[in-house]
């Protein structure tokens, strides 16, 4: 459960975004608004990457723990951007291994990664160069890399805008299903009403 308690972001005197809401596990909160309305700024506050020019008030509580002051890497909030942002110098398998927490011997880790790839129809892709993958394949690798890090919540920053219509529906369904299965609260920023419709959760308009 992700609780955004009176989360308020200001730039000087200007109010950028203000939310006070709870996102339950398996639920998708959609945040909509025109570009420049502060949607991504809000997500940056939740991940802990807000530019210091902004001021932030309120608290972020994830599964009962106050994570407002924690650094990004300690928050356990996964994020997907419009670009897949796979690390280009690592193979597909190495990208997943980067997300997988420490523990287990090499063989076990290898197996976990193979299973994750098979789950999204990419068996045998571990040694591939990410640059040789199609858009949909990259999106699936990015999703699995994030899920392997065992996040407690999921943020989607225009995550589907880069994909064409067919693929978009397919990846969107995959992400939402995964989030529901793992009972993750999801916050999605989008400007596409179809995304909000598919999410079938509460919608907040800002800006």
């Amino acid at each position: 459960m992700l609780h955004l308690q009176n989360l308020t972001i200001t730039l000087g005197q200007r109010l950028i975004a203000q939310v006070d809401t709870t996102v339950h596990g398996g639920e998708v909160l959609t945040i909509m608004g025109p570009s420049g309305s502060g949607k991504s700024t809000l997500l940056a506050a939740i991940t802990g990457t807000l530019d210091p020019a902004f001021a932030q008030q309120g608290r972020i509580i994830l599964d009962g723990q106050d994570i407002t002051a924690l650094p990004t890497e300690a928050r356990r909030i996964g994020i997907l951007f419009q670009d897949d942002l796979l690390f280009p110098h690592l193979s597909v398998g190495q990208n997943l291994a980067f997300g997988l927490p420490k523990g287990g011997n090499r063989k076990e880790r290898h197996k976990t990664i193979e299973t994750a790839l098979r789950d999204v129809g990419l068996q045998g892709f571990a040694n591939r160069d990410p640059a040789t993958l199609s858009g949909g394949q990259k999106a699936r690798v990015a999703l699995m890399r994030m899920l392997l890090s065992q996040p407690k919540a999921l943020l989607l920053d225009e995550a589907f805008s880069g994909l064409d219509a067919d693929l978009r529906e397919q990846i969107r369904a995959l992400v939402f299903t995964r989030a529901r299965v793992q009972n993750l609260p999801v916050v999605m920023v989008t400007h596409d009403p179809a995304d909000a419709e598919a999410a079938a959760g509460p919608v907040i308009h800002i800006g």
């Binding site: 991940t47 802990g48 990457t49 650094p71 990004t72 890497e73 300690a74 928050r75 356990r76 909030i77 996964g78 994020i79 951007f81 670009d83 942002l85 690390f87 980067f98 997300g99 927490p101 890399r145 994030m146 890090s149 996040p151």
Partner: peptide, 20 residues
């Protein structure tokens, strides 16, 4: 954003610098 993603995956700033 590569750094943001890596941090969100649990990597420390030092690891992001040296590994990414």
């Amino acid at each position: 954003r590569h750094a943001t993603v890596a941090h969100a995956l649990g990597a420390s700033p030092t690891r992001v610098l040296f590994a990414i």
